[in-house]
Structure formats: structure tokens, C-alpha cells
């Protein structure tokens, strides 16, 4: 039945079979294909001899090079660590004044800070440290806990209202929800607080004398009599123009009624001491760049 015929175009014989009009040529496998196949197999063979390759029950062929990816990684980490120790050691040991006075160490902070900040801090505080609603702005001059580098370093280590045993704690009570203050008093307080803030142009009117009284009774303990806050307990300055949770009437009423409890995670388990120190100085430098940027 099967009759081979010669294909006019290629000159090769067909196999003699036909499937619904499709025929096949009996062309020999091109030499180049066999050469490539052999070359690929020789590559594999060489690889198997040199590298860990074939399983042998509960062990495997180790390869003549003795290469092991875990050891290789450990060596790379060790090498990197020893190279970095030239700046990590002083960065960890010196106090901040000494580091800030050392231009070589500060160059490392400038170099390594941005990526560290963007990988770990930017999702809340913004890639430029601009902050956002509920997340403090870091590139200005107001600091909830003060601008001392050691204080910032401590905040980075233990967090705020975090799960760390030594966490910083800062809670704005919900005066309205707890029934301590009536809606009317809260309204007065909001007007008063807005009047002392530089973000609002309202003046202290007669109606706010009630607000002022309530302020000195309920708020001044943390936010100070003049409203400038208290960095020991993380109470924000109310007289400047920056608000973490918003300074409009709705937001302030919500703050006074329900309270606020921000959260910052503790980083002491996730970032090394040198990384936290770099971040501390980097965060402070964000602030500086704003100051210098404002006064060209």
C-alpha cells in the first residue's frame, strides 16, 4: 500500500504514508542537529561531573569542584560584612556628634539612607518623608518626640504603641466617647485650638474663653499651657501649622471625640543597629534639606 515517491522540490523521498493528504519526507536528520545534540549532552555531562548533580539514595554526587551554594552564599556574606565593618564599626560605636562631624561616615549615610528609607519607611511616611493623613511628616522641623538623634533612634528601635515591651506609648483619649466632654465643650475646644494654630487665621474671640478654660483643664497637661506640646510624652505642638490627623473642624472634632492612637512598628528585630543609625541621621537630614530649601 505504501508507495514512496520523490518530492519534486526537495528531491527527498516520502515515507509512503499519507494522512488526509499530508505526506512526510524521509529526510535524514541534518548533521547540524546531531552535532548540537552531542554538544548539549557533553555540556550536561561536564556540568554533572563538576557540580552536585545526581541523587544517590540519601546523598548525591558532590561534583569535583566541591561547589555548594550555601557555603558560597555564606562566604559572600562574610566578605561583604568584613568590607563593611570599616564603616559599620565606627557608625555603631561613635556618638552622633562624632558621626555628624565625620564627613566620610556622613557620606555613607547619604549614600545608603535613601534606599533604606524607601524600602522600610516610605510606605507610611512617603518616599520624600512628606507623610500623609495619619502618618507624620518627617521632612519638617516639628518632632513629636524631639529632634535629638538618640530619641529618634529609640523610637526606631521600640516603635510607638507597638508590641515591643519598651514601646513608646502615646494615646490621645476619646473625651467625647468616654463621656468626659459634651459636644458643646468639644466645639469650643476645636475653635480654641484652631485659634492658637498658625494654620488658621481665626482670632481668640469672646466665645472661645470657654474653650480656653476647657483647654487648660483637659489638654494642657500634655499639650502644655501655650499649646506647644510636650516631646517627653509625644504630645504634638498645636500652635504650628502641621496636623497629623487634620486641622479642619471635622477632623479635630473626631480627634477630641474618639481619640487617636497611632502605631509605629518596632524595628530592632528587622533592621540592624547600623541601619537604624543610618536611618536616624537620614531622617534628620530630610529635615535639614527642607530648612535650607526654604531659604535659597
Amino acid at each position: 500500500m505504501s508507495v514512496s515517491e520523490r518530492d519534486k522540490y526537495t528531491g527527498h523521498m516520502t515515507t509512503g504514508h499519507e494522512w488526509n493528504g499530508i505526506k512526510e519526507l524521509n529526510t535524514p536528520v541534518p548533521l547540524v542537529l546531531l552535532v548540537f545534540l552531542s554538544a548539549a549532552f557533553l555540556f550536561a555531562l561536564g556540568y554533572w561531573i563538576l557540580m552536585p548533580a545526581w541523587p544517590l539514595g540519601d546523598t548525591y554526587t558532590k561534583g569535583t569542584l566541591g561547589f555548594d551554594q550555601r557555603q558560597h552564599l555564606a562566604k559572600q556574606i562574610e566578605k561583604n560584612d568584613s568590607e563593611q565593618s570599616r564603616w559599620i564599626d565606627p557608625l555603631v560605636q561613635l556618638d552622633f556628634d562624632a558621626i555628624q562631624g565625620n564627613s566620610q561616615l556622613m557620606a555613607i549615610v547619604d549614600e545608603s539612607g535613601p534606599a533604606l528609607f524607601e524600602d522600610n519607611c516610605a510606605m507610611c511616611h512617603g518616599s520624600d518623608g512628606d507623610g500623609g493623613r495619619y502618618f507624620p511628616k518627617l521632612n519638617d522641623t516639628s518632632w513629636l518626640w524631639g529632634s535629638d538623634p538618640n530619641v529618634i533612634l529609640q523610637t526606631l528601635a521600640v516603635g510607638i504603641n507597638s508590641t515591643h515591651p519598651d514601646t513608646r506609648i502615646a494615646i490621645m483619649p476619646g473625651f467625647g466617647a468616654a463621656g468626659v466632654l459634651s459636644a458643646e465643650v468639644i466645639e469650643n475646644l476645636v475653635a480654641y485650638v484652631q485659634s492658637i494654630s498658625s494654620s488658621h487665621n481665626t482670632s481668640i474671640e469672646q466665645a472661645n474663653m470657654a474653650g480656653k478654660e476647657a483647654y487648660s483643664m483637659y489638654c494642657a497637661g500634655c499639650h502644655a499651657n501655650d499649646g506647644t506640646g510636650n516631646s517627653v510624652v509625644g504630645a504634638p505642638n498645636l500652635t504650628d501649622d502641621y496636623w497629623v490627623y487634620g486641622g479642619d473642624t471635622t477632623a479635630l472634632t473626631a480627634t477630641l471625640t474618639h481619640g487617636r492612637k497611632g502605631h509605629m512598628p518596632a524595628w530592632d528585630k528587622r533592621l540592624s543597629l547600623s541601619e537604624r543609625r543610618i536611618l536616624t541621621l537620614y531622617v534628620l537630614s530630610l529635615n535639614q534639606s527642607v530648612v535650607t530649601g526654604d531659604k535659597p
Partner: peptide, 22 residues
């Protein structure tokens, strides 16, 4: 993943080019 398994993956993937191009 143990490295020997990765080695087998590399070598067979490289050899695979020949029948694929075939």
C-alpha cells in the same frame, strides 16, 4: 531546593533547546 536538583534543571533545560529547534 538542593543544588543537585537545580543542576539537573539547568542541564536538561540546555539540552532541551535541540529537540525544540528540531
Amino acid at each position: 531546593l538542593p543544588q543537585w536538583v537545580q543542576t539537573l534543571g539547568v542541564t536538561f533545560s540546555v539540552m532541551l533547546i535541540v529537540p525544540s529547534w528540531g
